[in-house]
């Protein structure tokens, strides 16, 4: 049963990922991304991380990809692109090198830490996870208790990003009005 769930979810993730890079229509690519995110949510559920799965669907599928689609529709780039014309000729060989490098690093990381995989590494207590609300309680203790400093730093980072975006968007406008 677990193998079956894994195979189906993995097929969803990989199929979606291939779809993202092969579909020439941006909206179809975004929809493939949704498929990938759903596959990951299924994986989360099958590993007893139901809260992460719900957040994955609410935040990534429900908000971020919706924003992608918004931008695609508002900018009117929702037509099939002709990918044969390449304005910056170096970027394709460069992309090939970078992706090969990333794949190499990931494989190296997996190979070098092979013994550690599948071994419990602390954090959540798996034995009590089936109790009601245990998932969210344990996660909350970890985030707001043991790792509260990192959590607060992350939220400050997000806030800075938001303020920076607003500032950049405004400055361009007032310069234009000043001229």
């Amino acid at each position: 049963m677990e193998l079956f769930v894994f195979v189906v979810a993995a097929a969803m993730v990989l199929g979606g990922a291939i779809g993202v890079i092969t579909r020439s229509n941006p909206v179809h690519a975004a929809l493939s991304l949704v498929l990938t995110l759903f596959g990951i949510a299924v994986m989360f559920v099958s590993h007893d991380a139901q809260f992460l799965a719900a957040v994955q669907v609410i935040v990534y599928a429900g908000a971020i990809v919706v924003l992608f689609l918004f931008v695609i529709m508002l900018l009117g780039v929702d037509r099939t692109e002709d990918v044969n014309i390449e304005p910056i000729t170096v970027q394709r060989p460069l992309a090939l090198i970078v992706s090969a490098g990333v794949v190499g690093i990931v494989i190296a990381a997996v190979v070098s830490s092979r013994e550690l995989l599948g071994r419990p590494v602390g954090g959540l207590d798996k034995t009590t996870l089936s109790a009601p609300d245990a998932n969210i309680r344990q996660l909350a203790r970890e985030i707001f208790g043991n790792n509260v400093f990192a959590f607060e730093l992350t939220s400050v980072l997000l806030l800075v990003a938001v303020v920076g975006t607003v500032l950049m968007a405004r400055r361009v406008k007032s310069n234009g009005a000043g001229k």
Binding site: Q50, F51, A53, A54, V55, V57, I58, A61, G62, P132, D133, A134, N135, I136
Partner: peptide, 9 residues
């Protein structure tokens, strides 16, 4: 286990 979050999702 995620209860009403399911409705939000």
């Amino acid at each position: 286990p995620v209860g009403v979050l399911f409705a939000l999702a």
